[in-house]
Nucleic acid binder design. Structure first.
Lengths: 221, 221
DNA sequence: TCTTGCGACATACTCAGTAGTATGCGAGGT
DNA sequence: ACCTCGCATACTACTGAGTATGTCGCAAGA
């Protein structure tokens, strides 16, 4: 019970300023291992013991910081979304026409997917879970919160695309909402097929990301 | 063991000509319910008892026709892929330039996604599972087989796009493989966000499908 | 007509795995 | 000397896949 409150405090702390202790390291380490396990074996397919084993520890350590398996999953998801948001927000705030901004946003999104495969694969999984009715009452609150963030994320693209239509850099007549769902789908799907080559340089990653973004903006014809 | 062989025979029968008995109905009914359960609660989140309950029956009925839960899942997946393949193959065989064919193929794919939400959601889930290392030796054989079909499916798009580049209807310079992964991602992502409106007519569905296809071919700019 | 066999399930188990808990325990700070 | 943090250990209770066996109806042969 005291434990329980501590977790929540923790969540807000990490979201705010980084605590300069070993605590943050320990939590981050757990999140990293959890992200890998969830990515490789899925949420239900991963047992807490799996994560613990990967940590070289036992359940005790995990349950000391997280109330439940679901809580752990959501925290990984949240971190993944945070990284996505940061990257896209940053790209969006660098001026240009609507079309240019959109291009940079998609590119940033793609690059983040490629550089955080584990976390972002969990994010994609979480979006899937939204359909899933199999959630306890309390978990649904967390899920809804995350889906709200997800929605705001999507709105960033919608707004920028509308901006592009206003300044003439994006063609009119297209259903903006549908177009955004399409391009986000294309990028999110990278979680399925993209695997970093062992010798892949950041420059090569950037090239792929740019290519994906250009295709979504300009099409193939 | 005799049971086991029966299942396999069965699979080939259903893939060939329809048997005009109650057997096919019973199996199809199970597949339908399983597709819904897997879609709503995920593979691991669905218990055989869940499927049975939805059928208004018990485990016995399911295990009479399927060796294991995994087998059931794969059979649903296979059916979903079959429907996709049929639709896309049919669209591809209707002439036109490479670009036109590609447009029709994407449209057919999208429409199939919208008209078979449960089965196709399972297909998407199955593609996810390919990453998952958590599969028993024998299951991996089935999974690999399905991934092979999946790969041939993807190749249909790749070939058609190359055809389009040859006849000048698709622009050169684009990485064909990457482009195909992008557009397939956009369409597959429909499994996440698309829900048929209660009063949605087939014509409206067709419009959405066409729009999605056009966006992928022409881009937004 | 009887019965014999089998197909199509239902019932009643087993048992391994797993989320979550309760408690122990050493180290470091005060 | 004590107390709390940061875990490890040792449970519990339950779920859920798979199995073994029973049962009922029907169809074909004798």
């Amino acid at each position: 019970m005291a434990n329980h409150d501590m977790h929540r405090e923790w969540a807000s702390k990490t979201r705010g300023q980084e605590d300069s202790g070993h605590l943050a390291d320990s939590v981050a380490e757990i999140l990293d291992c959890a992200a890998l396990c969830f990515t490789e074996m899925g949420f239900q397919g991963t047992s807490i013991d799996d994560v613990a084993r990967r940590l070289g520890a036992t359940k005790g350590r995990i349950y000391h910081y997280f109330r439940s398996k679901t809580d752990l999953f959501f925290e990984v998801h949240r971190e993944g979304m945070r990284r996505l948001m940061d990257a896209v927000n940053s790209a969006m705030s660098q001026g240009g026409t609507g079309r240019e901004k959109l291009l940079h946003m998609i590119e940033a999104h793609a690059l983040t997917m490629m550089q955080n495969t584990a976390y972002e694969a969990v994010v994609v999984q979480g979006v899937h879970m939204h359909r899933l009715s199999a959630t306890t009452p309390e978990q649904r609150v967390s899920l809804d919160e995350l889906m709200d963030i997800r929605h705001r994320f999507e709105q960033l693209f919608v707004e920028t695309m509308r901006e592009g239509q206003a300044d003439g850099s994006v063609r009119e007549g297209a259903d903006v909402s549908l177009a955004v769902k399409g391009l986000l789908g294309a990028v999110n799907w990278m979680a399925i097929w993209y695997r970093p080559r062992p010798d892949e340089t950041p420059e090569q990653q950037q090239l792929i990301a740019r290519h994906v973004a250009e295709l979504q903006v300009s099409g193939i014809a």
